[in-house]
């Protein structure tokens, strides 16, 4: 049997448990990461939604900011995670994000998202969500809302402004796990 992929889920704050549940459902093994040492031996990492200011501060306190910058495997960031990885924060992604771009909680929404894959649209949940304001040449935009990019890929990075872990649709996590498998294949 194939060894399950071990995927870290940054667990300093936010809804990391739902990402872990999604990973388990797809046959991967989730590992909660609160300290830098816990990144060792992982095949990939998810930076979940939460409050980006709180997550950023808690990461810096224990050197997780440097450790994640040095982590060389695929990373998937959702909402706050997308913010944490951008040019203005950890600088791993060549894009800039506008926080709370859609507005306060009264403007939070769910909507169907066309992934351009010929499949049924994806029901996406946006909570005080950011959007991508500016991208560099290496960033591929996978989905938009009203002309604003909300799902993008850049090499080993995948970022979403919405919360695929809050629905039963597993497609975005599968997309990430495929990136992880490819990266692991290249290395092996």
């Amino acid at each position: 049997m194939e060894k399950p992929l071990r995927i870290g889920v940054l667990a300093v704050q936010g809804n990391f448990r739902e990402h872990a549940a999604m990973l388990r459902r797809l046959g991967a093994e989730p590992v909660e990461v609160r300290l830098p040492g816990e990144l060792e031996g992982l095949d990939g990492l998810i930076v979940p939604g939460g409050e980006s200011t709180a997550i950023g501060r808690l990461m810096a306190l224990y050197g997780l900011d440097d450790a994640v910058q040095a982590f060389d495997r695929p990373i998937f960031g959702t909402c706050a995670g997308m913010i944490v990885l951008d040019r203005d924060h950890l600088g791993l992604g060549d894009y800039r994000v506008r926080r709370n771009a859609f507005g306060r909680q009264v403007a939070s929404f769910e909507a169907d998202l066309d992934l351009g894959d010929g499949e049924a649209p994806l029901r996406a949940v946006f909570i005080r969500a950011p959007w991508i304001e500016e991208v560099g040449p290496g960033v591929e935009i996978l989905a938009e809302v009203d002309g604003h990019p909300v799902l993008a890929r850049q090499g080993r990075l995948l970022v979403a402004a919405f919360h695929p872990e809050l629905t039963d649709d597993t497609r975005i996590h599968e997309l990430f796990l495929n990136q992880v498998r490819e990266a692991a294949g290249v290395r092996a």
């Binding site: 809804n15 939604g49 009264v106 939070s108 929404f109 769910e110 949940v125 809050l166 629905t167």
Partner: peptide, 21 residues
């Protein structure tokens, strides 16, 4: 069509606050 104020959107914000103060 965007839908606002659904239970999923309402509970969603609480989900993001988890593990926090």
């Amino acid at each position: 069509m965007a839908e606002y104020g659904t239970m999923r959107v309402k509970t969603g914000l609480a989900e993001m606050l988890k593990g926090g103060v």
